[in-house]
Amino acid sequence: MNCNDVSEFLDRMIFEEVSAGDDLVKHIDACPDCSREYLDALKARAAVAMARGNNPELIAPIDLTDDIMQAVDRESGKTAVLSVYLAKLLAAASIALCMVFGYEQFEVVRKVSALEIQFSQAGSGFQYTGPARLAASLDIRNSGISLSKVEKVLAAGTGTRLASFMDIQKRFINRKQK
């Protein structure tokens, strides 16, 4: 047991729950340098423990949620209303592309991306990153995900209009298959 061993132990002791073995304690007691290092390490450990503690400064201000929501509303601005509408439209478009034309997946993604770009250019700096791309990126045919599940997920957030739109598409396809 030497001064280096003690120093290595103290490195850990400040940040981790470790206790010194008998050999180490014996050396610290006998060595003035290590005794001083040990006392400093104890203080350092106390400082670190207190800095870790759950002090009031680390508690989020009570009005933070409202602040964030207001900022998000400001950020999306009037396009927030538009975005829900676009989301529906794009989701419908991607589903329709899959169903009606039986496109390869990358084709659907490409078309939907093009639509997104068009929409984002039309709206003031509006960047669409919503469910349409998600829908388009799901490889429905090869992944074993059923189309009806995708429809359900999308319809849950996109309202009756899309649901009925998809319903029409489905009937259209069923007729075509018969």
């Binding site: 989020a60 998000v72 927030a80 919503g130």
Partner: peptide, 24 residues
């Protein structure tokens, strides 16, 4: 998934759940 669909109320829930660890 509701937030992905543009649902503000759902997003608010998400904010409430994670703002404290985020702030820390």
């Amino acid at each position: 998934s509701a937030t992905m669909n543009g649902d503000h109320a759902a997003f608010r829930k998400l904010v409430t759940m994670y703002q404290q660890p985020a702030y820390r």
